[in-house]
Design a binder for these strands. Structure first.
Lengths: 205, 205
DNA sequence: CGTCTATTTGAATGTACTCAAAAGCGGTGG
DNA sequence: CCACCGCTTTTGAGTACATTCAAATAGACG
């Protein structure tokens, strides 16, 4: 059940994290920072609420300022396949649908209460025009995303479910604590029942 | 067995395809085109010869002008997992190792005699400095690569081997004709024996 | 406290793998 | 041009990994 709660908090928006995120790859002056920030729409998302739902056009790319989001694909039988988790300091969207302004294949939902900054597709285009350095920034973001997905493909092809689970725990220990086993199972590509037996076997050793 | 053959051909290099490829996303003037071309190293690769071998540092991103390349990962047991095929008009590299100048995880090999243009990592950096529009170009290339890999992950998670095979035939009919079933199997994540039985069942229907 | 969902456990089943052997195919050398 | 060699593909038997279904238990949250 999805329920609204009151925002915990304040009118003062802190852009430090997102500005630092951009600053990792490109150097911006004060004016450019202000322009960038002016394009962001901040949003609170309560636990289990949706940032994006299947079939609706994906308007935004989201930067997670705090909290945790999950993107998943639903097949015809309503089975969930987790495509990615996004913790603080990460960007997330349904890239294909964001770029081509098509109905989304993915659902993006808050695993826990989150604070995000949304950037609209046409505002991003404006940003590229005004501050071309952002082409470089998103070139690097896309490059890293590509590399990550390719590594995931390699591991999905070459490792057993048990090895993939172990990798996940090692690579994302924090996420592993915050999400359900069912969600981890759907990220690894196994059923929750099977993940449960894997864990049982493991602790026996 | 890997064997050298004589180059079929000519001293005149035709850059039309690669220039048109870049032209799909950014507009270049004559001077910029010439600078870009000056950075390319053209190479013939004979059938079954290597463009990149595991553990050697990946220096180049390659544009396939003609022919067909295949990138694969070898696990500790020497099993092959095909990561991608690249036909004419495609770019291919071990992105992680190219960007970070680390020893390659992937092997890139010519499925058939190919003619490629190589772009060295530091020449690409020069290109970004001289013609910043290329940031946009590679932003789009990376973005498309990311979207493709993500779609592949979704399909690997949610579809059966048979559906994946059918998708492959539909999406890449030309590649399907040029590569062995063993290579397709290793792309789909099944054994060649199993792919063979899938095909047998299919034709029975 | 009660309800809903996640997790565990187990039995039966199915999908895909391993191993082995035979048949097919393409390239090479005689 | 034909025969052989090596690799790919097919086929089949036995096995392993992972799923489905069902039911019981545990946990989270209003």
């Amino acid at each position: 059940m999805i329920r609204k709660q009151k925002p915990k908090s304040p009118a003062i928006i802190n852009y430090d994290l997102i500005v630092a995120n951009v600053g990792k790859h490109i150097a911006l002056d004060e004016k450019e920072i202000l322009f960038f920030i002016s394009l962001l729409k901040e949003k609170h998302v309560y636990k289990n609420n949706f940032v994006l739902q299947e079939a609706q056009v994906c308007q935004y790319i989201s930067f997670v300022n705090s909290g945790l989001l999950r993107a998943y694909y639903l097949d015809k039988e309503d089975k969930e396949y987790t495509i990615m988790f996004a913790v603080a300091d990460w960007w997330i969207t349904d890239m294909y649908c964001y770029i081509h302004q098509k109905p989304a294949m993915l659902t993006i939902q808050a695993v826990e209460e989150s604070h995000i900054f949304n950037l609209k597709n046409d505002d991003l285009e404006k940003l590229y025009m005004e501050v071309p350095k952002f082409e470089k920034f998103f070139r690097i973001i896309m490059q890293n995303a590509y590399i990550r997905e390719q590594l995931r493909i390699i591991q999905n092809l070459s490792l057993s479910a048990e090895e993939r689970y172990h990798n996940f725990l090692t690579k994302y220990p924090q996420i592993a604590k915050q999400v359900t086993q069912k969600q981890i199972a759907s990220y690894l590509g196994v059923t929750p029942e099977f993940l449960s037996t894997l864990r049982a076997n493991k602790s026996k050793t």
